[in-house]
């Protein structure tokens, strides 16, 4: 294992210390329990939007705390969901009297820890709603699984939901927007290499030099199928087809296309992927009206990418375009 870490058990806290210093204009960091919170929280009359999950997906979620996006983020250990005490304290810290929305990615651990936190927060009189993201089309047989994983759409949902909350909309409206984004979004991911969890010290899975894994999640968990590498056009077609056919996205639809890097893939390759994606979608009469290209929901140093589409309407487009000021996403201000 070759990594720029001191000790595996210190990596999350050292990251938090860095964030506290580097982004002091945007956020404050609370330790024990650990969470990153907007510097100006709580905002009176504004719904607090919080998320959280295992570390190792940076910039998600901590990098999305700030104006127009998240009010707080709770980082767990690497690839391990955070604990209820973190979400409870974060919920209290961002509660401005209008209630708090929890955005939870659909993983067994995240669901259980957030549920326990929501129960505790409600017992303290705070109104809490939770929206679960589950956009990963790689998981097909959801009756016999923990259900579709929450992946790329989570980033988009946090941006759009955060913008709605910034407009001081009511908790129910903010939660409904978040649900709509999740319902209109689909994602498919692939990996060229595995990743190494610092505690484990060796790659989570072995992937031969000439093979790729299709349908991976964001934790180095193996995907659905393994196959020989193919030209990018064929890889993108395979992924995009799975995404497009699932919703389905139809001719005439306007979409937000999010080409995400898994952590170890350079931007130049993500542009190659975007180029192929644009060709594929054009061929189907689907227009990319907005885009996001870069590594925003990562899986440590894994090489690979995911493709997320969101079918846009006027409301979602306006909220996407609204100003945002976080360490990870920033425009309009």
């Amino acid at each position: 294992m070759k990594k720029l870490i001191n000790k595996p058990e210190d990596v999350v806290v050292e990251e938090l210390q860095a964030i506290a210093h580097a982004h002091a204009d945007l956020v404050k960091v609370h330790y024990n329990p650990n969470f990153i919170v907007r510097a100006d929280a709580p905002l009176k009359g504004k719904v607090g939007v919080i998320s959280g999950g295992g570390s190792g997906h940076e910039p998600m979620h901590g990098g999305f705390v700030g104006y127009g996006m998240l009010d707080a983020a709770c980082p767990g250990a690497v690839f391990t969901s955070p604990t209820p005490d973190q979400m409870l304290e974060a919920t209290k810290a961002v509660n401005g009297g209008a209630g708090v929305l929890h955005i939870v990615k659909n993983y067994t651990g995240d669901i259980m820890n957030f549920e326990m936190a929501a129960d505790l927060a409600r017992a303290e009189g705070i109104e809490v709603e939770a929206v679960v993201t589950n956009d990963d089309v790689a998981v097909q047989d959801s009756l016999y699984t923990a259900g579709r994983r929450g992946v790329g759409i989570t980033v988009i949902a946090e941006k759009i939901t955060g913008a709605a909350a910034e407009q001081k909309r009511a908790l129910k409206d903010v939660a409904d927007i978040c649900r709509k984004v999740n319902a209109q979004g689909r994602t498919m991911g692939m990996a060229l290499t595995s990743c190494t969890v610092p505690h484990a010290g060796k790659p989570t899975f072995d992937l031969p030099e000439d093979e790729m894994e299709i349908g991976i999640g964001i934790h180095g968990e193996p995907g659905r199928t393994r196959m020989k590498l193919k030209p990018v056009a064929e890889i993108v077609e395979m992924m995009a087809k799975a995404v497009v056919d699932d919703l389905p996205y139809k001719s005439g639809d306007e979409v937000l296309a999010f080409v995400n890097g898994m952590g170890g893939t350079p931007l130049i390759e993500l542009y190659v992927v975007y180029n192929e994606l644009n060709k594929f979608l054009s061929g189907r009469g689907i227009k990319i009206a907005r885009n996001l290209i870069g590594s925003y929901i990562t899986s440590l140093e894994m090489a690979g990418c995911s493709i997320t589409l969101l079918k846009l309407d006027d409301e979602m487009t306006k909220l996407w375009d609204a100003p945002v000021k976080t360490a990870g996403l920033r425009w309009g201000m």
Binding site: G76, S81, P84, D85, G109, M112
Partner: peptide, 12 residues
């Protein structure tokens, strides 16, 4: 365990 384990193992 609930406040230190995380994941699914913590709540369970």
């Amino acid at each position: 365990l609930v406040s230190t384990v995380g994941g699914a193992g913590g709540p369970l």
